[in-house]
């Protein structure tokens, strides 16, 4: 007999977004931490039903933006007023007004980088494979089914209890997902 494969988590299938949303509320209230909901499209109110806090990605873009702005100002000041001053039309060697447009662009650039890379970092992306992708029915998450997945690494996870919970919230089809 082959060794039993590791179990990644438990997958519960729902047929309507409302069912998935109510189930998510129950799972949230039970106190699970490592779990997620998969839907074919964004479902309004799901964040709240899952108890998700505001994303931290904003901080990455904020810090990126501030870095872009200050580094732009410092760079232009250093180049034009310190390292290689060129007098033009009697204007000051450095003025925050003249330097503003490139700094503004740098703010946006690094802010966007912050958002993109912050998002990848928070999502632990890129990764080459995910156990769920191997699961046959999970492909329906891009079609017409709604899934809740609770990972085995969650401290509250127990195969029987969690299965009962997901049954009680109305899932007709509950399966284990192999690692």
């Amino acid at each position: 007999m082959a060794a039993t494969p590791n179990i990644y988590g438990i997958l519960a299938e729902f047929e309507t977004p409302a069912d998935a949303m109510h189930a998510a509320e129950k799972v949230r209230d039970t106190g699970f931490r490592k779990w997620d909901v998969f839907t074919p499209y964004p479902v309004h109110g799901m964040d709240k039903a899952m108890g998700l806090k505001n994303s931290k990605v904003g901080w990455f873009s904020f810090i990126g933006g501030v870095t872009g702005y200050t580094s732009g100002m410092v760079m232009i000041w250093w180049m034009n007023a310190v390292d290689y001053p060129i007098p033009i039309g009697g204007k000051p060697m450095f003025s925050p007004f003249g330097a503003f447009p490139p700094c503004y662009e740098l703010t946006i650039l690094l802010g966007a980088f912050g958002a993109l890379f912050g998002m990848l970092f928070m999502n632990r992306l890129p990764r080459l494979h995910h156990p769920l992708l191997k699961h046959r029915r999970f492909a329906l998450a891009t079609h017409d089914r709604y899934f809740i997945v609770i990972e085995t690494t969650d401290p509250k996870y127990s195969e029987n209890e969690t299965r009962k919970l997901l049954e009680s919230v109305g899932s007709k089809r509950i399966e284990l997902v192999e690692e």
């Binding site: 039309g89 007004f97 003249g98 503003f100 447009p101």
Partner: peptide, 9 residues
């Protein structure tokens, strides 16, 4: 508005 006027001088 300020910048364009400042720049044209």
């Amino acid at each position: 508005q300020y910048f364009i006027i400042w720049n044209a001088n």
